[in-house]
């Protein structure tokens, strides 16, 4: 594989990292949590409360995943600058 091909592979692979998909999932989560909170307000169910409480840790994991993929893209950019 010559350097032009290497660059092309790395650039494409970085562009295919699922940043947009995870951002969209974060928006879906936020939206669904709001719907749920509105529907469950005042129900007092422990399962309902636990389900609502579980949304934030999921969102936090996704934010960390997004940060990790951004860092990966940055590393790929560094590599492409260097070769």
């Amino acid at each position: 594989m010559d350097i032009a091909e290497v660059r092309e592979h790395v650039a494409e692979a970085a562009a295919d990292l699922p940043l947009a998909a995870l951002q969209a999932s974060l928006e879906v989560l936020d939206e669904q949590r709001s719907h749920l909170a509105e529907a469950l307000s005042g129900t007092g169910s422990e399962d309902a409360k636990a389900a609502l409480a579980a949304f934030e840790p999921v969102a936090e994991r996704l934010r960390r995943a997004v940060a990790a993929y951004r860092a990966a893209v940055s590393c790929c950019d560094d590599y492409l600058d260097a070769v």
Partner: peptide, 17 residues
């Protein structure tokens, strides 16, 4: 080093997901 670091970040992203 940069590609190795990129792979480590991707592994992190997969794990968090």
């Amino acid at each position: 080093d940069a590609p190795r670091e990129a792979l480590a970040h991707i592994a992190e992203g997969i794990e968090r997901t």
